[in-house]
């Protein structure tokens, strides 16, 4: 069943056009940076963007910082929102359920396919960003070594390992989005409703983060630790927020997957 869902996801034209769209923004930014050579003012703009002008190998991280706050979650919310509600709207849900693999397994298969989408999207962004960074912005670190956020030097192995960890962390954060969208997908009538509901939750969370009055709930907001991947590039790595962020996402995934199961396992399918 998981294989079927994966093949459905990979064969869907929407998957690839979405990934292409996500990829377009960092590509545009890279071209503009290379042409104008104007970085953002320090303290403004996404993480690492000011650093990439001298070192293109950091561009995958800058690209991650560009797509992580908005583009990627939207894409994930749409894809995961499709999962159940989309099948229901298309009428195929009932045919999935009468070829029984079990409803819980269907949910898991859907989550795995969304996860695969996330991995694919993040990797495509990272690889194109790396190629663009090297070709358009130059690759100083290959000769002198990259500079960590704390000013010490990072060897190429360290840089690669930490970039890999950052990508994995971003994927985990997106899995949290996917779980929420999947739950809403079992509850909403239309896939668009599920996607919009998920986006509403994340916009609300982002808004609350900026509010001092929401101090008490801040550590529980789903977007609270999203940008903590920057901490991987401090020296030594600051694990505090990363660990909390990972645990928080795991809890979100667990809770919303359980809620999706509770809602869907005996839901009347009458579309």
């Amino acid at each position: 069943m998981i294989r079927v869902e994966l093949s459905k996801m990979l064969r869907s034209r929407r998957t690839w056009s979405t990934i292409l769209l996500i990829d377009a923004l960092p590509t545009l930014v890279a071209v503009l940076l290379a042409v104008t050579d104007l970085g953002p003012r320090p303290g403004q703009g996404p993480a690492f963007l000011s650093a990439v002008l001298t070192d293109g190998t950091l561009y995958p991280l800058a690209a991650l910082g560009i797509v992580l706050p908005l583009f990627l979650p939207i894409a994930v919310a749409i894809t995961a929102g499709e999962a159940i509600a989309g099948e229901a709207q298309q009428g195929t849900l009932r045919y999935l359920l009468v070829r029984p693999g079990g409803r819980t397994r269907l949910l898991v298969a859907k989550l795995v396919s969304v996860l695969a989408f996330v991995v694919l999207a993040v990797l495509v962004v990272a690889v194109t960003a790396y190629v663009l960074g090297i070709t358009l912005l130059g690759s100083q670190s290959l000769t002198t070594g990259a500079t960590s956020v704390s000013g010490s030097s990072l060897s190429t192995t360290e840089l690669v390992a930490r970039t890999g960890l950052a990508l994995a962390y971003a994927m985990l954060c997106m899995l949290g989005v996917a779980a929420i969208a999947l739950f809403l997908s079992t509850a909403a009538e239309s896939p668009l409703g599920a996607a919009l509901g998920t986006m509403a939750i994340f916009i609300a969370s982002t808004l609350l983060l900026t509010l001092e009055a929401s101090d008490a709930v801040r550590p529980y907001l789903p977007t609270r630790y999203w940008l903590a991947f920057v901490d991987l590039f401090r020296d030594p790595i600051l694990w505090r927020d990363l660990v909390r962020g990972s645990l928080l996402q795991v809890v979100y995934v667990g809770v919303f997957l359980a809620a999706a199961w509770a809602n869907f396992a005996t839901k009347d399918v009458s579309d």
């Binding site: 009932r94 359920l97 009468v98 029984p100 005996t266 009347d268 399918v269 009458s270």
Partner: peptide, 9 residues
């Protein structure tokens, strides 16, 4: 029919 197929409880 949906009840027969387990789609509706």
């Amino acid at each position: 029919v949906r009840m027969l197929l387990g789609l509706v409880l």
